[in-house]
Write a protein that binds this DNA or RNA. Structure first.
Length: 212
DNA sequence: GGTCGGATCATCT
DNA sequence: GATGATCCGACCG
């Protein structure tokens, strides 16, 4: 179990994201963000989790990406065309918030969807925000609710308060599983979903929620 | 354990 | 006008 939850062992975190960390391609960043921490002080109280599941979206040529629109940037997706390390937040199914980390150089509309975190700080508040429901933060909508992330953070630079990404723990390749993407109706088999094997923060999902 | 319908609305066609 | 980068509670076995 300790191997599945290396951050529970008290090992010291890495010192910083290397220069250009977020300027790389979205699959590289998606892999690199496993083990990183996301720290929220939204609403004045601290909640945090370790990222254990991500999904990469490749931009206009990726039919599953919100950047794949007929006429390029739109009001919704424009954050993805901007500089890296910003948040692209959107509303899903009219009721959930989902959050991406923008990657690639400015003008490159790539992003990494955060799909699951393992709560490590402020679990009490996370549970209140989630109204006692479980899992606390496994799933893209759930993690936004648990951390208090809403559309107010659209375009927010994730280097500063109230929502910050911090380097965390290195997750070895042996613990990383790569599969197709969840919940998309096209290009679902592209191997762009990354998660930490066996971690409880990995999203639950059923494939039959809606005919596709 | 699993499968399924419904909520609910911004966005795109 | 149709469709979701989802979640939840109900139902079945």
């Amino acid at each position: 179990l300790a191997a599945r939850l290396p951050w529970r062992g008290g090992e010291p975190p890495l010192t910083g994201f290397p220069d250009g960390f977020f300027t790389r391609s979205s699959p590289e960043v998606a892999r690199g963000l496993l083990g990183a921490r996301i720290v929220s002080t939204i609403g004045g109280q601290r909640t945090a989790g370790v990222i254990v599941e991500t999904e990469a979206y490749l931009g206009p040529d990726d039919p599953a990406s919100h950047a794949a629109t007929k006429d390029g940037p739109t009001e919704r997706n424009r954050a993805m065309f901007g500089p890296p390390r910003r948040a692209y937040v959107y509303r899903s199914y009219g009721m959930h918030w989902c959050m991406n980390v923008v990657t690639g150089a400015e003008g490159v509309a790539q992003a990494v969807l955060l799909r699951g975190v393992d709560p490590v700080e402020g679990e009490r508040l996370m549970s209140v925000r989630r109204r006692g429901r479980t899992p606390l933060a496994g799933g893209p909508g759930r993690l936004c609710e648990a951390l208090g992330i809403t559309g107010d953070l659209y375009g927010h630079d994730l280097a500063v308060s109230p929502l910050e990404l911090h380097p965390g723990w290195h997750v070895p390749d042996e613990l990383v599983e790569i599969t197709g993407r969840i919940g998309v109706s096209v290009a679902a088999d592209w191997p762009l979903r990354f998660f930490v094997q066996g971690n409880p923060g990995v999203s639950r999902h059923n494939g039959s929620a809606r005919p596709r």
